[in-house]
Amino acid sequence: MNFLAHLFLSGKNEEVMIGNLMEDYIVGRIDHERNNHLNKDIKHGIMLHRLIDTATDSNPFVSNCKLVLYEKYHKYSAVLIDIYFDHFLAVHWDFYSKEPFDLFRKRVYFSFEKHWNILPEKMKPMIESMITHDWLKNYAEFWGIERALLGVSRRTKFESNMEKATDDLKIHYKLFKDNFEKFFPELLETCNNFLDVNGYENIG
């Protein structure tokens, strides 16, 4: 899953949400001494991110989607599905969340600004761009997906052609949507169970 899903699946705790998105900037075990400066909620967010990635990578509905793209995009097919699924979450937001999408985005952006001092320095330019250009809203539009894919493509070490993958989303739209609708409730339940066990408010 990509940024929107990771943020949504974090529930209502600000630091769990920040930790979830911070995971890409954390090396190794959460309990390693290098991570001692992180508080409990941030660490739970990192753990939740890793749980989401594991559940996504092993899910047969996600695999169905990767197979459609693998011949053309190889290992990058997983990245594409993450972004496609953020698109479906944005488009069908009201089905999965009681919180209006506008209020959710404002809450997310405010939370990052409020906790700016705890963000890794390498993460800050990405968050600044997310807030300035309202990435989360843009996932609902094909041009927003194309823009996101172009950004990812520029960061890959090898030529990926991911910037052209909006066409594949359009061609196989129903297949991707159907598999998302089967997969996402399972992931939602997994994340709610994690939040429950650790004493956090459920997603909604």
Rank of each mutant, 00 (worst) to 15 (best):
G28K: 06
G28L: 08
G28S: 06
I30K: 02
I30Q: 01
I30A: 06
I30E: 11
D31N: 14
D31E: 14
H32I: 05
E33I: 10
R34F: 01
R34A: 07
R34K: 14
N35T: 13
N35S: 10
N35V: 12
N35C: 09
N36D: 12
H37F: 14
L38Y: 13
N39Q: 09
N39K: 09
N39H: 07
K40G: 00
K40A: 09
D41F: 03
D41A: 11
K43Y: 07
H44T: 08
H44F: 12
M47C: 00
L48Q: 06
L48Y: 04
H49Q: 06
H49V: 08
L51I: 13
I52W: 03
D53E: 05
T54H: 08
T54M: 07
A55E: 14
T56K: 10
T56D: 12
T56G: 13
D57T: 04
D57R: 02
S58P: 00
S58D: 13
N59M: 03
N59Q: 04
P60I: 11
F61V: 02
V62R: 07
V62E: 03
S63L: 13
N64T: 10
N64Q: 13
C65F: 03
C65A: 09
K66M: 03
L67C: 00
L67K: 11
V68D: 03
L69C: 02
L69M: 06
Y70N: 01
Y70V: 06
E71V: 00
K72N: 09
Y73N: 03
Y73G: 04
H74G: 01
K75F: 12
K75D: 09
Y76E: 07
Y76W: 11
S77K: 01
S77Y: 02
V79A: 09
V79Q: 02
V79W: 03
L80H: 05
I81Q: 05
I81L: 05
I83E: 08
Y84R: 08
Y84G: 08
Y84D: 08
F85K: 08
F85M: 12
D86T: 12
H87G: 09
H87I: 07
H87M: 10
H87W: 06
H87F: 10
L89Y: 05
A90L: 13
A90V: 09
H92Y: 15
W93R: 12
D94G: 15
F95W: 14
F95R: 15
F95G: 12
F95Y: 15
Y96E: 15
S97R: 13
K98A: 14
K98W: 09
K98E: 15
K98I: 13
E99P: 00
E99N: 12
P100M: 07
D102Y: 10
D102I: 11
L103H: 04
F104P: 04
R105I: 14
K106S: 05
R107V: 01
R107S: 08
V108R: 01
Y109D: 04
F110T: 10
F110G: 00
F110W: 00
S111Y: 04
F112T: 03
K114S: 09
K114Y: 12
K114T: 13
K114A: 09
H115Y: 15
N117T: 14
I118G: 01
L119G: 03
P120W: 07
E121R: 02
E121Y: 00
E121H: 01
K122P: 00
